[in-house]
Each structure stands twice: as C-alpha cells, then as structure tokens.
Amino acid sequence: MRIEPLRRPRRALRLAPLVDIVFLLLVFFMLVSRLDVPQTLIVEVPSEASAGTLQGAVLVRLGNDGSLDVNGRPIGIERLAGAILPFLAKDPDVRVLVQSAREAPLEKLVRVLDRLRGAGAQDLRLLEP
C-alpha cells in the first residue's frame, strides 16, 4: 500500500513574534542597565595623628558664597590653577589643604579640588570646615 506523504503546507518560520520579544528585551535592558563607568575623586581627611604635618602647606579656603582665597589672598575659581602653580613649581609634592565653609554646596568644593588636581596638585587634604 502506498502511503501518501502528509501534505502539510510548508510555512516559513514566523519571525514577527520573536522580533517583538527581542525588541521588548532590548528596550528593557536599554532602560535599566547602566553603561557609564563610575568616576571617583580621592579625598583625604586628615586624622588627629596627622594634625602636626601642616607646615609648608598651601591653604585654599572656600566660603559659603563661593569666594576663594589662597593663603589669604582672594582669588576667582578661574585663576585658581594659576595661583597654585608657583607653589607646585617650587615643590611638586606640596601639600594643599582645602578648607570649606560648612554650608557651601559640595559641588563648589569638588570644583575646587578638581581644578587643583588638574593643575598638578597630588597631595590634597580636606580640613575640618
């Protein structure tokens, strides 16, 4: 007896539902995953033991209103790097102490630290506000 092969129409694989799901997964991962690498700023808070090692350091003070002074000389943030360069030229490892007013926003302090770091200061320390 000859058996007739089952006649089932060959249909192409339906890709549309697959694409829908893959799209949904893609959108999910695009929304919830974090791609940026975290950036960090090293901050040194002096301990009680290191309180006596402030001699020869440069003092940068930040006021509540964003005013700045370097060793008591008022200066604008855009001139900070230029003001610190002579000290770094004399001693590249000079310690820079940064003292900020308690109520100053952190972003202003970070901007100061960033400028000092950009100018080449390596030994940055925060002082008690």
């Binding site: 690498v37 972003e107 970070v110 901007r111």
Partner: peptide
C-alpha cells in the same frame, strides 16, 4: 553627584 574633570575612573 557633582561634576569633575580630573577624577579617576573605576575604583
């Protein structure tokens, strides 16, 4: 977080 230009990457 505040913006910084000369921060280290990772940690």
């Amino acid at each position: 977080p505040p913006e910084a230009e000369h921060a280290a990457v990772g940690g």
